[in-house]
Write a protein that binds this DNA or RNA. Structure first.
Length: 599
DNA sequence: GCCGTTTTCGGCCCGACTGTTTTCAGTCG
């Protein structure tokens, strides 16, 4: 019954065990509880499914999972349950673990509520609590009052309509507009996004912004007058919160310039990064907070204000860490050793390797909206040296082999003409930056691993991308075989949007990544980082794995209109979160070098 | 229960908010 728990379910289980320990002895189990909560966190953030790690006998590869928890999980994967976990949770109502999903309800509160209200069924536990709150039954329970009833009502409502995390570019746009507004205040010296937004995670929960200001109170006042704010939630001396059009909450935290570094560092997170830093600080008799760094001596501690993040990290004896790396996955060690990677930058990108033009090749999927000429103009403005036209292949059902080849030859001629004019133009005018366009194609990988374009058709191409647009649910073995078969064609260089995920909409496909990475290494094939904000695929954690092994990656915006070509920056963010440097990304190469590796 | 460049024993992050209580427990990020 429990045998195929995914990571989220395992994390939930571990949290339930921690909650059970809280009830069965908060003080004597204090650190055991912390350990279980940390294990839950670690599982949630793990880049591989635990079930897979267990298959390979590598459960304790996850930091936070030691011998004991690994044994219990082993039992669960084999028998579907753990005697120990059942023992710990014995006598506790299962409904209480459901109630804990409501913000503000922890282990103790949850237990009390289920007991006092007689909530038995975990399926509708939250609804039952809601009814009790509305009837005013909760205020009679010891430790609760009218106000707690009120806040419970709000939290339950929030849980039910829990706002999903929004995709990065949307959050970025909201934040950029507000940062610009905040900077209008003459007291403000700096303003930055915070949290997962500053760390460029693919989705963002809350939007928080920091400002350094000589006069925080005036700055808070200015912030609450933001024209697009629909409501001001709270307004204190150091923080304020507003709701902007679209219903998203934005919080501002303000600090004097001389203490801004500590604030910025603290609220950029991640939580795990900061916890690791604080533990390290303790060993050096330092204590970290958002106000600064405390230096501890025998009987007192003195606060040192920290003006910049650089100073913050330097005080801990390490290099400044780019926000994208602050996930406690080895960056602290590297910063201590002054050995952080030199992450790839947008300015180093020399090409966009997935663009769909409006040149009609009767494709199987959607055609682009901008002409090849428009794309080249846009590429010039972005400073690129080359681009690849990667329309979808001509539809398989609508054309026979001869017709497909004819269509592809037509496109090849068009690209040849453009390249001719680029050569003559660049001889005349240095300002034209794009020197060459590549004749490519984004080809469907059919469910059997074959390609819908014959060898004759493939010959017209400089190189091809392959990708999956159907049969997403094949099992891992078949899917891996399918992809490797498609990538084996000599003209295929890039596996595009490899997991096929759509953020908030569709899970990725199931692939044996070790085999894919290995194949890429041995055959000089590349994996795309698709910069489409809905995709951001390869995901950052797989980028990290690929980079470790030396697998080469490419950037493509998958643009169907020239405006989308600006999305490249989000692809770069994914790469940076995956520790990629310039040498890991093929299209940071100059045109000359790119043509060499294409061979 | 986990973990190790001061440790295989003896530690384990910090601060704020909330609500109900008279000094604090529970929860959160």
């Amino acid at each position: 019954m429990h045998k195929n728990l995914n990571n989220l379910e395992i994390a939930e289980l571990l949290r339930a065990v921690a909650a059970a320990y809280k009830l069965k002895g908060q003080s004597e189990n204090k650190f055991r509880i912390v350990a279980y909560e940390r294990a839950a966190d670690a599982v949630e953030h793990a880049s591989s499914e635990l079930k897979d790690l267990w298959d390979e006998g590598k459960l304790d590869d996850i930091p936070g999972i030691g011998k004991s928890i690994a044994e219990h999980l082993d039992e669960i994967f084999r028998n579907g349950k753990s005697k120990h976990f059942e023992e710990v949770m014995k006598g506790l109502p299962p409904a209480m673990f459901e109630l804990m999903k409501v913000p503000g309800i922890g282990a103790k509160t949850s237990f009390k509520l289920t007991r006092e209200l007689g909530i038995k069924d975990s399926k509708n536990a939250i609804s039952q609590l809601e009814k009790a709150v509305k009837k005013g039954k909760v205020r009679n329970i010891e430790g609760f009052g009218e106000q707690s009833e009120e806040s419970l009502e709000k939290s339950i409502k929030e849980t039910k309509e829990r706002t999903v995390r929004i995709i990065l570019p949307y959050a970025q746009k909201i934040a950029d507009d507000i940062i610009a507004w905040v900077k209008n205040d003459k007291n403000v010296q700096r303003a930055d996004a915070l949290g997962s937004l500053r760390r460029k995670a693919s989705t963002v929960g809350d939007i928080d912004i920091a400002a350094s200001s000589k006069n925080p109170i005036e700055t808070i006042n200015h912030f609450t007058k933001y024209p697009n704010a629909t409501r001001v939630l709270e307004k204190g001396e150091r923080t304020a919160g507003i709701i902007v059009a679209g219903g998203k909450q934005v919080d501002l935290m303000v600090e004097k310039p001389e203490a801004y570094g500590a604030l910025l560092q603290h609220f950029t997170g991640s939580k795990h990064h900061n916890i690791a830093l604080r533990e390290l600080a303790l060993k050096r008799n330092l204590s970290l907070s958002d106000y600064g760094i405390y230096f501890k001596t025998k009987n007192r501690k003195t606060l040192k204000k920290i003006e910049t993040e650089e100073e913050f990290y330097k005080t801990l004896g390490m290099d400044w860490i780019p926000p994208e790396l602050r996930e406690d996955t080895g960056e602290i060690d590297m910063a201590l050793k002054h050995n952080l990677p030199d992450l790839v930058q947008l300015s180093e990108v020399k090409a966009d390797l997935q663009i769909h033009s409006s040149f009609d090749i009767e494709t199987s999927h959607d055609l682009g909206e901008s002409s090849m000429e428009e794309v080249i103009n846009k590429a010039n403005s972005l400073g690129y040296e080359y681009v690849a036209f990667t329309e979808h292949n001509p539809s398989k059902s609508g054309h026979n082999e001869t017709q497909t080849v004819e269509i592809l030859k037509r496109k090849c001629e068009k690209v040849d003409k453009i390249n001719y004019s680029l050569r003559t133009a660049s001889a005349r005018n240095e300002l034209r930056r794009v020197k060459k366009v590549f004749n490519s194609l984004e080809i469907d990988i059919l469910p059997n691993g074959k390609l819908p374009v014959s060898d004759k058709g493939m010959e017209t191409l400089d190189f091809a991308l392959v990708s999956i647009h159907s049969s997403f649910r094949q099992n891992r073995v078949d899917m891996t075989r399918r992809v490797l078969s498609a990538m084996s064609h000599p003209k295929v260089k890039i596996f595009a949007h490899p997991t096929g995920r759509k953020l908030g909409a569709r899970e990725g496909i199931d692939l044996d990544w070790e085999k894919i990475f290995d194949f890429c290494l041995k055959n000089n094939k590349w994996l795309e980082i698709n910069a489409d904000p809905m995709r951001l695929d390869l995901p950052d954690f797989l980028v990290r794995d690929a980079v470790k092994l030396g697998v080469k990656l490419t950037f493509g915006t998958d643009s169907h209109h020239i405006d989308s070509m600006d999305n490249m920056v989000f692809g770069v963010s994914v790469a940076r979160r995956g520790w990629a440097t310039k040498k890991d990304i093929v299209n940071t190469l100059s045109l000359e070098d790119f043509e060499k590796v294409l061979k």
